[in-house]
């Protein structure tokens, strides 16, 4: 069954959705959309470094993405405006990554696959990385769920209860780096944050509690992956963008349904 590239692509898409759902809700609640972009863009630099040093691409992407997350957290903690820091670092990392990749031989041809994903070329080994990484992210978020949620609601309340908001931010940064690494092959660096935000936003329209929203975001992400793949196959469109387009379509339907239910 795994011999079929479409089956592998579907499994990869659903696997990624399992990790982007629970993390995406925090990206939306904590307004980390731009942070997600910066981390994802940094992954291109990680790809270049990995290719130049014969490391696995996922390792390079996760490493540089995590370094970016920590740098941003550190600079904003010192009083830099988050918006400016992210604006500078996100674009600098993307540009530097593109420059660096041009030095690596025989990669220019596949550059597009790192920017926009190449889900139809997912191998068995990729699947293992994706599902392993997704399981790690889900386990991390489920384990820290209540603490992450309270820190998101109010950092002082969390602190007064003996939690460390800094530690919880670190948990999210690590989870984000992992998600970026495993999503790179699926939708590419430019559309990863779409996969985090759009399903969560769609789930918000219908969910009444935080847990329901996380489960809903996962379901929307998985649905969008399957729908996007189907569309890509039938209309011969690029797979990654088709998945994000499908997610946006589900978002529009969810918003309308949410309005109707409240009316």
């Amino acid at each position: 069954m795994l011999d079929d590239f479409l089956t592998r692509a579907a499994l990869a898409g659903v696997g990624v959705a399992c990790s982007t759902g629970p993390l995406g809700v925090f990206v939306v609640w904590r307004r980390m959309a731009y942070f997600g972009d910066a981390t994802a863009h940094a992954a291109i630099l990680g790809v270049a470094l990995a290719l130049a040093s014969d490391l696995p691409v996922a390792v390079g992407a996760a490493g540089v993405a995590a370094a970016m997350g920590l740098t941003v957290a550190n600079l904003t903690g010192r009083g830099w405006a988050a918006d400016t820091v992210l604006g500078v670092l996100a674009h600098a990392a993307l540009a530097l990554g593109l420059v660096a990749i041009s030095f690596v031989q025989n990669v220019q041809l596949s550059l597009e696959s790192y920017l926009f994903g190449d889900i139809l070329a997912v191998s068995r080994a990729d699947l293992a990385v994706i599902w392993g990484g997704a399981a790690l992210v889900v386990a991390l978020i489920v384990w820290r769920w209540d603490r992450l949620l309270l820190t998101t609601v109010n950092e002082d309340l969390a602190h007064a209860d003996g939690l460390s908001p800094t530690r919880e931010r670190l948990v999210l940064t690590v989870a984000l780096a992992l998600v970026v690494a495993i999503s790179l092959k699926i939708v590419g660096a430019l559309l990863i944050s779409a996969l985090l935000i759009v399903p969560a936003a769609a789930a918000r329209a219908l969910a009444r509690g935080p847990e329901a929203m996380a489960v809903g975001a996962t379901a929307v992400g998985a649905g969008a992956a399957l729908l996007g793949l189907w569309a890509s196959y039938h209309f011969d469109t690029p797979a990654g963008p088709s998945i994000v387009t499908a997610a946006a379509g589900i978002f529009a339907v969810a918003v309308v349904l949410g309005r109707l239910r409240r009316a």
């Binding site: 939306v28 307004r31 209540d146 918000r204 935080p210």
Partner: peptide, 19 residues
């Protein structure tokens, strides 16, 4: 408490955080 409007949080759920 400034809650982001994207976070659906019923009163009972809030009272159950973190215990």
């Amino acid at each position: 408490l400034t809650l982001d409007p994207t976070l659906p949080l019923p009163v009972a759920r809030f009272l159950s955080l973190p215990r």
